[in-house]
C-alpha cells in the first residue's frame, strides 16, 4: 500500500517539476525574441516539422551508428586492455602514464585531430567516441581486476580449475559491476561528444543538423533536437540500461 502511494507521489512530483519548468520557460519566452528563446509551442511545432523532414531518420541513424560503433570498439579494447593491465603489474606500471595523458586530452582536441586525420567521415566521430569512452572502461576494468577477491581465486584453485575457467567463472563475474557502470558512463559521454565531433566533422547526423540550425539562427530547431536527444537518452536509460542492470545484478542485496 505505502509502496504504491510512494510510486504515485513520485509521479506527481515529476509532473509538478515538468509543469513548473514549462511555465517558467513559457513566461521567459514572452520576454525575449524567439531567436534567443523560443516558447514551448514553437519548439513542439519544430519537433513536428523535424519528424516530417525526409532526412530525419537518416540523421538519427547516422549518429547512432557512429556512437554504437565507437562505443562497441571502446568496450572491446578497453575491457581487453583493462584485463591485461590488471593481470600484469609490470605492464600496468609501464602504461600508466599513457593512460593519464589520454585522460587529460579533451574530446574537443581529439575531434580536431580526427578532422586532420580522417576528414569529413564516419571515422572522425567514431574515433572521438572511442577515445573518450575507451579510457573510462579501461580504467574501471583494471580497477575491477584488482578488487577480485583472492579468496575466490583460492577456492577455484582448490577445485583445480583451469586458468581459463577461473577467468570465466571468477574474474569476469567479479568485474562485471565495474564494467557495467563504466560502460554506462562511457556511453553517456560518448553520446555527448559524438555531437561535438559531428558539428565539425560530418555532413549528416544530429550534430551536423544542430550546427546547421545554429548557423541559420533557427533556435527553435536547436531546441527541438535537444528535446529529442533528452527523450532518447531517457528512453534508452529506462528501457535498456535499468532493466539490464536489474537482471545482471539481481544477486546483490537490496538494502
Amino acid at each position: 500500500m505505502s509502496i504504491i502511494n510512494q510510486h504515485w507521489s513520485l509521479i506527481l512530483q515529476r509532473l509538478v517539476l515538468v509543469s513548473v519548468f514549462v511555465i517558467v520557460w513559457w513566461l521567459a519566452s514572452l520576454q525575449m525574441p524567439a531567436f534567443i528563446l523560443p516558447g514551448p509551442q514553437r519548439v513542439i511545432e519544430a519537433v513536428r516539422r523535424l519528424f516530417e523532414t525526409p532526412s530525419f531518420l537518416n540523421d538519427v541513424s547516422a549518429t547512432f551508428r557512429r556512437v554504437l560503433l565507437g562505443f562497441t570498439l571502446a568496450m572491446i579494447v578497453g575491457a581487453t586492455l583493462g584485463l591485461l593491465l590488471g593481470a600484469n603489474k609490470i605492464l600496468a606500471r609501464f602504461f600508466e602514464p599513457v593512460l593519464a595523458v589520454i585522460n587529460t586530452v579533451s574530446s574537443a582536441i581529439w575531434a580536431i585531430f580526427a578532422i586532420i586525420w580522417f576528414g569529413i567521415s564516419d571515422a572522425t566521430t567514431v574515433f572521438v567516441v572511442f577515445m573518450t569512452a575507451m579510457p573510462l572502461i579501461l580504467t574501471n576494468v583494471w580497477q575491477g581486476v584488482q578488487t577480485v577477491d583472492r579468496q575466490y581465486i583460492q577456492l577455484a584453485l582448490s577445485l583445480r580449475m583451469s586458468k581459463l575457467a577461473i577467468l570465466r567463472k571468477i574474474v569476469f563475474p567479479s568485474i562485471l559491476p565495474y564494467f557495467f557502470s563504466s560502460a554506462r558512463l562511457a556511453f553517456g559521454f560518448g553520446w555527448r561528444v559524438s555531437l561535438v565531433a559531428e558539428t565539425i566533422g560530418a555532413s549528416e547526423g544530429i550534430g551536423y543538423r544542430l550546427r546547421q540550425a545554429a548557423d541559420l539562427v533557427q533556435t527553435d530547431q536547436v531546441f527541438a533536437w535537444t528535446l529529442l536527444l533528452v527523450m532518447m537518452m531517457l528512453f534508452i536509460e529506462s528501457s535498456v540500461l535499468k532493466p539490464l542492470e536489474k537482471r545482471l545484478f539481481r544477486w546483490k542485496a537490496t538494502t
Binding site: R160, M161, A165, K169
Partner: peptide, 20 residues
C-alpha cells in the same frame, strides 16, 4: 570462510565443485 560466490545461487555454488 564460506566463500560462496555472491553471483551464483546456492545450488549453482554447490555445482561449482563439479564443473571441473
Amino acid at each position: 570462510e564460506d566463500r560462496l560466490l555472491p553471483w551464483r545461487s546456492i545450488i549453482e555454488n554447490v555445482c561449482l565443485s563439479l564443473e571441473t
